[in-house]
Simulated scan of single mutants.
Amino acid sequence: MVIRSNSVALTLLILVCAIWGVGFVVTEHALGKLSTQALNALRFAIAALSLVPLWLSLRHREPIPDCPRLVRGSLSLGFLLFIAFYAQTEGLRFTSVSNAGFITGMLVPLVPLLSWLAFRHKITKAGWIAVCLSTAGLYGLTGGANTALNKGDILVLIGAIAFASHIVLTGHYAQKLPIISLSILQMLAVSIYSLLASWLFDHDPSKTLFSLNPEHWLQLLSPDIIGAFLWMGLLSTAFGFWVQTSCQKTLEAHKVALVFALEPIFAHVAGAIWLDERLGLMGWFGAAAIIAGMLVAELGDRKSATLHPVDLAAAPDPMAEPLESNQPRQ
């Protein structure tokens, strides 16, 4: 199915931003039943499987892969994604959904900064302004000088840095590798890394996938937990991927980027509705500064707008031209 209407494309993109924003609340709910590692192992297994039909329908359009490079790239990118999702998901145990959404949004201005540090790619004036705005936003969102960063905020910030690093490295690998195959394999890598980490480090087996307690598995098979994993695996990843790639055929990149800046706002709204979270005056200042930083980073140079990388895991339009390594995919 091809989306040809601009209004339909914009509506679907806003819907996907809402799905991603509510996904923070969904993840926090599922954390009550599983450890962070076990949750991510199951989530990414579902996400990988959900992209197999897409791979089957488009595999004839992908280039023949360099298998050793594909494996290396998948393992490397999967490891960064494993660190990113562990830090973000574990951080949700200690900080609010609103803070997690806005701090994760900092990955947008972090991408050009890390690209400059890693590959000496030029960072524009808009990029430096975005970094300053986001830093000021983090200061305000976490309470300013009177309040230190809590454990959750630090973990989510580490996650944002890992997500940004993942985008930069994806630009390095995605130029010569089949994108959908790379996406599926790195998702499988995340699932395997998480399962291994759960086996090694989770001391409470009742919150893992290794539990032999029938009551634990009955809880995981409850409608709300099944719904949470379908939301994270199918809606956030598979549906989000399809909408984003389809809409990029219709809308200019900067318009797509502008819509995706709504995601942390949806995360805050979801936190306010379901978890009764509220931002104070400093928090609103911080949130506004981070969103301003995202928009400056995305719209400062419309030829290389940055799109959302978190749940799509390096899966841009398979028919599009390869991205330059200093232009994050999506």
Rank of each mutant, 00 (worst) to 15 (best):
I123V: 15
L200R: 00
E321P: 05
G21R: 11
L15N: 00
I64Q: 12
V190I: 03
R61Y: 04
T147H: 10
N326P: 02
G240C: 04
A272C: 06
A238F: 08
L312N: 07
Q219C: 14
F79A: 06
A288P: 11
H203N: 12
L114A: 02
W116P: 00
H29W: 08
K176T: 12
Q186P: 06
F201C: 03
L200T: 00
G143Q: 11
R4C: 12
S57M: 14
A162H: 02
A164D: 00
V25C: 09
A9T: 09
I64L: 14
A313W: 03
V243F: 04
D153C: 05
T250Y: 09
W242M: 07
I19V: 11
T89G: 04
P328L: 08
V243D: 01
T89W: 11
T147G: 02
L117N: 02
I14Y: 01
L51M: 05
G101L: 06
G137P: 13
L155Q: 14
A267K: 06
R61H: 12
A38I: 00
F241I: 14
V8W: 07
T237E: 14
F210Q: 01
G300L: 04
L299T: 12
T104P: 03
L299Q: 10
A314Y: 06
I273Y: 01
L169I: 14
H254T: 01
A87Q: 01
V310L: 15
V259K: 03
E62W: 04
F229W: 05
P65M: 12
A9I: 11
L177E: 13
G78K: 08
L49C: 08
L92I: 10
V310H: 11
